[in-house]
C-alpha cells in the first residue's frame, strides 16, 4: 500500500505533467468515403505545479487547457505522457488504486450550478466527498460541512438550504468548500470566476488566495482571463493549439512576453484608461502560428532541448518559450 499519506512533504511537486497528450479521432464522410482524422487536442505538455504554488494555465477555447485539466484529474484518459501526484505516477492506476489519489486532487468548474445536486441540502453537497471516501460518521461529516461553509464565507445556516437559492458567487463558494473538505494537495480551478459579476469576482479570487495560504494548497488555475491570472498566479503557462508556447513567472509574462500568441493575448486586454485608446490591428491565428520566434544562441540561457521545430527553450529565469534557433527551419 503506497498511499498518498506516506509521501513526505519536500521538494516533490504537488502535481507534475510529463509529455501529456490527447488525440481524438473524428469520423466523417459516407460509407464509402469514410475518413478518420486525428485531432491532437493536447500535445507535449510538461508542467510542474510546486507545492503551495498557483499556476495559471491560459488560453482560448480550443487551446487544450481544459482538456489538460481533465487529464490531470484523470477524468479523461491521456493518449500519452504521465501524471504525477506528489511524485507518484498515477497515469496507469486502476479505479481502486486511484481512489486515495483522487482525494489529493479536487476540482472547481465554471458552472457550479450544474455541478451542485439540486436535490441535496448544501450541507449534504459539501459533505458528499467525505461520504464517498468513507471518512467519519454522519454527524461529524455534517459538522465538517458546516465548518467549511463558514470558512468559505457562508453562514452555517446555509447548510439547510439548496443550490437554487444561491447567487452565482455563493454557489462558487459552496463548490470550493466541497472541493477542499478533503484537504487535497491540489485544486484544479477551471474558469471558476468567468461566469461571475465583476464585484463578486474579486471576492472569489481573494477567497482562493486566503485558502491557498491557510492550507498550503497548490492551485492549477485554468482561465482565459489574463487580468485575473495576474492578480492570482505566481506563474503562467500559455497554451495555443494544444501546446504550451510560453511559460514564465507572472510578471515576466506581462513585461517580457516573447511568443506572438502571448503578446496577442496581452494586447487584447482592454486598457482601463480612455485617454490611452488606440487603434488596434490584429493578426489572425494562422499568421500567429506561422510566426515562430527565432532565438539567437546567446539568448538561450540553458541547455537547448533536442529535436527539430519549435520547442520550449529557456530564455531567462524560469522563462521558457516555444521557439527555434537561428538557422533552423521553423
Amino acid at each position: 500500500m503506497s498511499g498518498p499519506d506516506r509521501i513526505p512533504p519536500g521538494a516533490v511537486p504537488a502535481l507534475e505533467l510529463r509529455g501529456l497528450g490527447k488525440r481524438f479521432h473524428l469520423r466523417s464522410g459516407g460509407i464509402l468515403r469514410r475518413r478518420v482524422t486525428e485531432l491532437r487536442a493536447v500535445a507535449d505538455v510538461d508542467l510542474v505545479l510546486p507545492r503551495g504554488g498557483i499556476l495559471g494555465l491560459v488560453g482560448e477555447s480550443g487551446s487544450g487547457k481544459s482538456t489538460t485539466g481533465l487529464m490531470a484529474l484523470r477524468l479523461l484518459e491521456p493518449s500519452e505522457g504521465q501524471i504525477l501526484i506528489e511524485g507518484t505516477d498515477v497515469t496507469a492506476l486502476g479505479h481502486a488504486a486511484l481512489k486515495p489519489w483522487r482525494r489529493r486532487v479536487q476540482v472547481v468548474f465554471q458552472d457550479s450550478y450544474s455541478a451542485l445536486d439540486p436535490m441535496f441540502t448544501l450541507a449534504q453537497v459539501v459533505a458528499e466527498p467525505l461520504r464517498i471516501h468513507g471518512i467519519g460518521d454522519g454527524a461529524s461529516r455534517h459538522r465538517a460541512a458546516l465548518d467549511w461553509l463558514e470558512r468559505v464565507g457562508l453562514h452555517r445556516s446555509y447548510g439547510s438550504r439548496y443550490a437554487h437559492e444561491l447567487s452565482g458567487g455563493q454557489r462558487q463558494r459552496v463548490a470550493i468548500a466541497r472541493a477542499l473538505i478533503l484537504e487535497p494537495a491540489v485544486l484544479i480551478a477551471d474558469e471558476p470566476t468567468s461566469a461571475l459579476d465583476v464585484s463578486v469576482k474579486a471576492q472569489i479570487i481573494n477567497l482562493l488566495q486566503d485558502l491557498q495560504a491557510e492550507m498550503d494548497l497548490s492551485i492549477l488555475f485554468i482561465s482565459h482571463d489574463l487580468s485575473v491570472v495576474r492578480s492570482l498566479c505566481d506563474r503562467v503557462a500559455v497554451m495555443f493549439s494544444g501546446r504550451i508556447v510560453e511559460e514564465a513567472p507572472t510578471e515576466a509574462i506581462f513585461t517580457s512576453a516573447r511568443h506572438p500568441y502571448t503578446r496577442a493575448l496581452l494586447d487584447a486586454i482592454p486598457v482601463l484608461d480612455p485617454r490611452q485608446r488606440r487603434r488596434r490591428t490584429f493578426r489572425d491565428r494562422a499568421e500567429i502560428a506561422r510566426d515562430v520566434p527565432v532565438l539567437r544562441r546567446g539568448e538561450v540561457t540553458g541547455p537547448v532541448p533536442e529535436g527539430a521545430g519549435p520547442r520550449l527553450m529557456p530564455i531567462g529565469p524560469d522563462h521558457r518559450v516555444a521557439a527555434v534557433l537561428e538557422g533552423e527551419a521553423a
Binding site: 498557483i54 465583476v198 464585484s199 469576482k201 474579486a202 479570487i205 488566495q209 482571463d225 489574463l226 487580468s227 485575473v228 491570472v229 495576474r230 492578480s231 492570482l232 498566479c233 505566481d234 507572472t250 510578471e251 506581462f254 513585461t255 486586454i269 482601463l272
Partner: peptide
C-alpha cells in the same frame, strides 16, 4: 475591484 491592474500576486 477589477483584477490585474497592478503587477504581483495580491
Amino acid at each position: 475591484s477589477i483584477p490585474g491592474q497592478e503587477g504581483g500576486r495580491r
